[in-house]
Computed example of a mutant assay.
Amino acid sequence: MAKAMARHILVKTEAEAQLLKKRLDNGEDFAKLARAHSLCPSAKRGGDLGEVRPGQMVRAIDQVIFKKPLRLIHGPVKSTFGYHLVQVFYRD
């Protein structure tokens, strides 16, 4: 079965996600921003979701993790929880 390693930042608004994405694009540290801003329990791990398999995450995030290019920061991606910025390290 496929698996991947990813991290994300979850915020309430698209505007907040856009602002954080600009900061990331300007070279700010993903883990530090995740710890400071993410609403997900993964924030304390710098947004690290660990190893995930298809179907473990909400559909919108699953699509990014298993179909989008690696190492780029994708988003904002809307889900029922809010807006996510997602980065995928590897998948097999």
Rank of each mutant, 00 (worst) to 15 (best):
M1C: 05
M1F: 08
M1L: 09
A2I: 11
A2Y: 12
A2D: 13
A2R: 15
A2F: 14
A2T: 12
A2C: 04
K3Q: 08
A4V: 06
A4T: 05
M5K: 11
M5Q: 10
A6G: 07
A6H: 05
R7I: 03
R7L: 09
H8G: 15
H8R: 10
I9F: 05
L10R: 12
L10W: 06
V11Q: 04
K12M: 09
T13G: 09
E14H: 13
A15D: 03
A15R: 00
A15E: 06
A17C: 06
A17V: 04
Q18S: 04
L19A: 15
L19N: 15
L20K: 09
L20M: 11
L20I: 13
K21I: 03
K21V: 01
K21T: 01
K21S: 06
K22E: 12
K22S: 09
L24N: 04
D25Q: 07
G27Q: 13
G27H: 10
D29H: 15
D29W: 14
F30M: 12
F30A: 11
A31C: 10
A31W: 03
A31M: 09
K32F: 12
K32S: 15
K32G: 10
A34N: 10
R35E: 14
A36D: 14
H37D: 04
H37C: 03
H37V: 05
S38T: 08
L39G: 06
L39W: 02
C40L: 01
C40N: 05
P41L: 08
S42D: 15
S42L: 09
A43C: 02
A43Y: 03
K44F: 07
K44H: 12
K44Y: 07
R45W: 07
R45S: 06
G46Y: 08
G46T: 11
G47A: 03
D48S: 08
L49Y: 06
L49R: 10
L49E: 08
L49F: 12
E51I: 12
E51Q: 05
E51L: 04
R53M: 10
R53F: 14
P54E: 02
P54Y: 10
P54A: 01
G55S: 02
M57F: 07
V58P: 14
R59H: 10
R59C: 05
A60S: 14
A60R: 07
A60H: 09
D62N: 08
Q63T: 08
Q63E: 12
I65H: 01
I65E: 03
I65Q: 03
F66S: 00
K67L: 05
K68E: 00
K68C: 00
K68D: 00
K68Y: 01
K68H: 00
P69N: 01
L70K: 01
I73F: 01
I73G: 02
H74T: 03
H74C: 00
H74Q: 04
G75D: 09
P76C: 11
P76I: 06
V77A: 07
V77S: 07
S79D: 09
T80G: 13
T80L: 08
F81T: 01
F81Y: 11
F81D: 05
F81E: 06
G82W: 11
Y83S: 04
H84P: 08
H84Q: 07
H84S: 07
L85D: 14
L85I: 15
V86W: 01
V86G: 01
V86D: 00
Q87F: 06
V88Y: 13
V88E: 15
V88K: 11
F89M: 10
Y90W: 13
Y90P: 00
R91P: 10
D92A: 15
